[in-house]
Design a protein around this nucleic acid. Structure first.
Lengths: 196, 196, 196, 196
DNA sequence: TATGAATGAGTGTTCATTCAT
DNA sequence: TATGAATGAACACTCATTCAT
């Protein structure tokens, strides 16, 4: 019960942080603003998080867990790596489209941080990159993908392309429909620019 | 003579900023540190730049101009879009490899800024993206690239892949040789992951 | 209890400001000096005042309130405007004499401010000028004062004379006894220089 | 010729200072602004004035000299102290009315200075106060004024009243006609508020 | 657990003055 | 005389974090 209550307030603060950062930008998001949004006192924040940076890390970890969980479930049971890749791109975009505040925070605001924090974020990101790697390995093994594929580089292409497209979408204030770009992006990732 | 001297001090401050930001990180880089590194007084900075942000913008504009200039010259006169793309990737990586401090600043530190500044940076970046677009258009016109290519998405894939790889290289403290990855990246961009 | 405590710290800072400004002069009175004198941290100042200028405005408002309050009580119940005017001059001088630091601040330091702040100060001053006007009106109505008196000009004479005398006293480092000048000043204000 | 030229540039800078201070306010009036207004280089200022404060002192001395000179000439030859006092008030107001910029500078901006500078200004002011004293002495000697008049206090009343009225006029952006107030002010100074 | 008043370290920018030319 | 590029000291204010209650 107590633990449940803690969990509630912990998530409450994280959700308040997402909203506050999205609305004010990372550098205009003071701890006191998060506290006010969460409906708790400033000091209470420090009962659940070590410091401000810890809020960010926890926020990213928490959200990325759901992200990975959801994508994993969607991908699971599909037969081809090609199809899995399409679903990954499409649903990555879908999740961001469903939560603009979160999209702003992950694509823009969370990057306005120092290298140390970026390394921690990269660490959390590994779980997501593992999803891509698994698809790539499966594709190579069953002959869908090029046997000589450099997994790391292919993963960087896939993640870099998705990320660049998503950031571009956020920078233009979500002006266009992100999800509908998935098939074309997928086509590019599988076949490249070349006239094959 | 005077103009020359001014030009010199302007560049002197910009180069000092690159070094100081790379060494200290964006948020630990005080104007006074840049001044000391440049060998001028704090106040002198403000004879050449409107404010601290203006140093960053100017730095990025100045360096990106050379970047684009150099890549343009290398690409000019090549016959195929495919070859041009390879040279673009390779020399993009080469320029970063030649100047680790600049790589740190552009890949990491310059991004720790608010949206407003990011938009200004994006504006400057457009000159570079135009280079990519021109290659894509040429490739489509002479049949090297897929006629149905979405230029914007293809450009985002190319830039996203290069950028993600470069950032990854900087985040690992330039542990591997970036330039030698160019051919494989190029292969991925042209043919994708698929087993064509 | 809380309100009481707040009130205490608010006044504590104002009193520290009076002393610090009187000792150092307005332009040499840094916020940190006021904080040190008040025995609080610099940041605490900003829990009670919007900014440095707000300290000054508040200081003047707070002191002027007591000033007016005290003069009003002394004047109340006296029968003639002439007597009231004497008491006003005498007690104006008395209050300044009792608090040299405050006298320095109001006669000299508070005037070293820009027009905008001066207008705010003038606004607060209106309460005091009203006291003078009321005396003048009463004097006219009961025949003590000239029926054709221009209230505004008479008020400016009275206030100008008191103020000039007080400033002169402060500029000479309170060398002479201010209060004992009241009867002569009063005589001048009532009868003028002329040989009536 | 050279001396003439010097004189010219000296006055040129002083006049530029009056305009610049009146337009920008004392604290927004940088030496570089005065230099630009005067059409000289910043450094040139320091060939004619010791420092910024010296510009102010010199400005006040220069203008006050003309002020006193002009008032002296107007007063000279008049037969009664009463008439002289009227002419003094009237022409004091007239000179200020003729030069709004100068009025702003002397009534408002020049007072935003520290005690040290104020003492120097007071010193220059003595020449003007002497004019008043002479009128008072003459008035006492020829029986126009009260034989028991305290010269210092009477002078403070006269100057304080003129000054307060002039400042009030400047603070209201010269909304009313200052010169036409002279007779009433004069009446007040001679006869006071009383119903004589 | 929860509060919120108090803390105090940290920095971009201005501008009077100088001095080499 | 005249210039104007260069100097560098000086300061109000913010905000993450603490701790007495």
């Amino acid at each position: 019960m107590l633990k449940n209550n803690q969990k509630t307030k912990y998530k409450q603060i994280i959700d308040a942080a997402v909203i506050t950062i999205a609305e004010n930008g990372y550098h205009q998001c003071q701890v006191s603003k998060i506290a006010r949004q969460a409906g708790v006192a400033d000091g209470t924040i420090y009962l659940y998080f070590k410091n401000k940076e810890d809020i960010l890390i926890s926020l990213f970890r928490e959200k990325m867990q759901h992200f990975i969980q959801r994508l994993s479930e969607i991908i699971a049971g599909k037969n081809t790596a090609t199809e899995k890749l399409l679903l990954l791109v499409e649903n990555h975009f879908r999740i961001l489209s469903e939560n603009h505040a979160l999209a702003i925070v992950t694509q823009l605001e969370l990057r306005q941080t120092n290298k140390e924090l970026r390394l921690k974020i990269n660490d959390i990101l590994k779980g997501y990159l593992k999803l891509i790697d698994d698809i790539l390995i499966e594709g190579i093994e069953n002959g869908e993908f090029d046997a000589k594929l450099d997994i790391r580089l292919a993963r960087q292409m896939i993640f870099g392309t998705i990320d660049e497209t998503a950031t571009s979408w956020v920078m233009t204030d979500h002006k266009f429909d992100l999800v509908s770009l998935a098939p074309k992006i997928h086509q590019l990732l599988i076949h490249g620019c070349g006239n094959n």
